[in-house]
Amino acid sequence: MRGFYGHTISLFVVTVFGSCTIYDKIFDNPVDFKANEEQGIGAPTLVFYPKTQTVTQSDSLLLGSFIVFMEDSIEPFSGVHLQIQFPNNLVELDTIVPGLFITDTNKATPLFTYTYNNENTVDIYTYFLDTLKQDISGTGHLANLIFNPISSGTDSIYYNLQECEMIDHLDQEIVVNGIRGAEVIIE
């Protein structure tokens, strides 16, 4: 009788406790300023989206470059210089296109150019040009970078914070307080 009760209770406890899983609350979207803040990365932050992606060697690797402000500390800006470094043993640069934010959702044609040192560093220079507005503000999409995998492996693409720069329409620098790289896995 005691054994019967014991087995019954054990089965019940395992069933109930095993069923009521408490999931981890992990919010880590690079575009989420709260997530960046939780990781100790101050805003404004230069981030890539997605933070991790896995592609095969036959696929292209599309990486979005974003500027993320905190809701209560948004500063208007006009120009951005991004220096991005990538593992050239894994991927090669294919294309760079302006993001929707810097083009003001295709209403404006920005100044958008880049230089590539043919190794592992690309510098993007962009300036918001519009007939009505002098600057833009808020979190948004600066550029899309497309890479082609050349070998398998795992590495990171990241910003060089010392060289990255953001200015307003008076050429006053807006300090970039943090960066987040992106992990790429080539299979």
Binding site: K25, I26, F27, N29, P30, V31, D32, F33, K34, Y49, P50, G64, F66, V68, G138, T139, G140, H141
Partner: peptide, 22 residues
């Protein structure tokens, strides 16, 4: 909601899905 949160790069959707997920 976490899946949708991870899948979007729109800051408004990120905030909405995060709020719902929390």
């Amino acid at each position: 909601n976490v899946k949708l949160y991870d899948a979007t790069d729109d800051e408004k959707e990120v905030e909405m899905y995060r709020t719902s997920a929390e």
